[in-house]
Design a binder for these strands. Structure first.
Lengths: 168, 168
DNA sequence: ATTAATTTTCAGAAAAGATTGAAAGTTCAG
DNA sequence: CTGAACTTTCAATCTTTTCTGAAAATTAAT
């Protein structure tokens, strides 16, 4: 297998994985493409390589930047914008987990809080069971949340540590 | 807010969360409905409460059983089948994570193995960088995988106590 | 200030994914 | 066996999500 084929396969696989986890296939593919590109790519290069429209490329690249895993590079003397992906997989994973938590999980957990104010007789078994399920979910989510925050913090410390060493 | 309203809201929220994470909205809603139902429900009850067709109810309940988080109950003397959800949230979470790993993540990681056989000169920087990205992803995935396997083996309460302390 | 290069937006088109409902299949009591 | 009760399947349809492409906006060089 040659390099071009291998990259192509990687991009396809990454797209499948993304869409199974609720991430738009094209966004995952652009991310994969940038991950395996040693040079920054322009919008045109992304469009050509993935055979997608300019609008699609533009919107998904913007989303990837919002996720904090792709950044814009300006080359001196060039009018075009170029893009690179964060290559450290641990950092990528932490940013994704952190963002999904913030955007998708937290709002729903907040909404659950209100549901505990369901009015019920103290001896209403149905109502008590309901509140208990909601409580368990929140308890679990809070634990998981702290776990994630812990991992993210570990990552930041590690990163800070390494940077310090680099300049020592 | 009364109990019926609260349940309805919970079901809607759970559906939204599911669809954001690549799980069919209706499947998540059925799961939510069973979670907050103190009695086992029949297909007809699920259809009525969620206003969905028999076929839809049937297929999604089957999927939930494949995930190992819902089970079929037979009541003596009743012809109908009834369904209940696993109520322990920790168990639910572990089953979901385990299944998604098995079904979605592992196949793709296996596919990545082949990509490392890309033929390249030893001094081909592009190819080396590519193999290095694939390697990093696999290394990361293997660590995460071991982490998940470890969690799955843990006892719920032990986890609750320890993880909280670890990241406080 | 004009023009050319480039990026952004978004309404409509296309594709993907979910749902229905009726027919086929199964099960079991009588 | 037969038929009523119930479950399963799947082609057709509907819904949601994603993508396109051309127009509008922005940017920067002359």
């Amino acid at each position: 297998m040659n390099l071009a084929e291998a990259k192509q396969q990687f991009i396809q696989n990454w797209g499948v994985l993304g869409s199974q986890w609720g991430i738009n296939r094209t966004m995952a593919q652009i991310h994969a493409l940038l991950l395996v590109s040693s040079e920054p790519l322009s919008a045109d290069e992304i469009m050509n390589q993935l055979k997608i429209s300019r609008g699609n490329a533009n919107m998904n690249v913007r989303d990837l930047m919002d996720w904090g895993i792709v950044e814009k590079i300006l080359k001196p003397g060039e009018r075009k914008e170029f893009f690179v992906a964060e290559k450290d997989i641990w950092t990528v994973a932490m940013r994704i987990v952190k963002e999904r938590k913030r955007r998708e999980v937290e709002p729903i957990l907040n909404a659950l809080n209100q549901l505990k104010e369901v009015d019920a007789e103290k001896n209403d078994r149905e109502a008590q069971e309901f509140v208990s399920v909601i409580n368990d979910i929140q308890k679990f989510a809070n634990q998981a949340s702290k776990g994630v925050d812990g991992l993210v913090k570990m990552d930041e410390h590690w990163f800070a540590g390494t940077l310090l060493k680099l300049f020592k």
